[in-house]
């Protein structure tokens, strides 16, 4: 379902973000085998969901998340893709209403 929904042959200027992600997808498939492919698909779907996220409660965010990690979280929001290492933290931030995603 996910693969059929990708449009890396679109008329947009190449390389599109989806094309770059597809290369990453193939890389993971070759390196780690099928068991991780499902995960990477999940990760890529998560990237789309992050398109419109923002820190809503900056006070809680800045007091609880250590400074070096704050930078990583903000960079991730800007990039629109969450690396696996940050996925659980993003989930917690969303659950607590600190991060809001449309």
């Amino acid at each position: 379902m996910f693969l059929s929904s990708m449009r890396f042959d679109s008329t947009e200027d190449a390389p599109s973000p989806w094309a770059r992600r597809y290369v990453k997808f193939i890389f993971y498939e070759k390196r780690f085998g099928m068991s991780l492919v499902k995960h990477v698909v999940g990760e890529m779907e998560g990237q789309r969901a992050l398109a419109d996220c923002e820190i809503r409660d900056f006070e809680t965010f800045s007091s609880l998340v250590p400074p070096s990690l704050q930078a990583a979280v903000l960079e991730t929001i800007r990039a629109g893709s969450v690396p696996p290492s940050l996925q659980p933290l993003f989930r917690r931030l969303r659950d607590a209403g600190v991060l809001v995603c449309l």
């Binding site: 809680t60 609880l64 998340v65 990690l69 940050l86 659980p88 933290l89 931030l93 607590a96």
Partner: peptide, 26 residues
């Protein structure tokens, strides 16, 4: 967060979970 507040159980669970997740992501 305040050690006394944590010891008294007065700190919101969500906040502790964020801090725990932060640690695991560092």
């Amino acid at each position: 967060l305040g050690a006394v507040e944590v010891a008294k159980g007065a700190v919101d669970r969500d906040k502790l979970r964020i801090l725990y997740s932060s640690m695991l992501a560092q």
